[in-house]
Amino acid sequence: MTQVADLKVVTEDGVVTLIGRGELDVFNSVALNEAVQIVVEHAATRSAVVDFRGVSYMDTHALWCIFRAAKALQQQGLVLTMLVAPHSVPERLIRLTGWDAIIRLCHSPEEVPIGSD
């Protein structure tokens, strides 16, 4: 059994946040997919945030889950914000794919916009 990703979704003041830790790859992307679905469903009209500052590794399959969520939110007029550690694997991967065009990258919670976009 591969390590289950440590994921949780927190909703506070209308902001829904997916917090992830550990390593996210093709073999635990099912759990990630479930989690991002919750984010999309609860995003309402406020901010949606993915906090991956504690993610040490993610692959293209895990990133695809995030991309699909970002696209779904975009259709609701929202921008998915992703908190990442500077120079981390998630940040590098998103920049390499060019998906930072639709996923807003931030390094600290203070940079996360509050409210709808």
Partner: peptide, 13 residues
């Protein structure tokens, strides 16, 4: 290190 990890990670997957 990040780039090597990403490349090897994708190849091994």
């Amino acid at each position: 290190r990040t780039d090597l990890l990403l490349a090897v990670g994708e190849a091994v997957a």
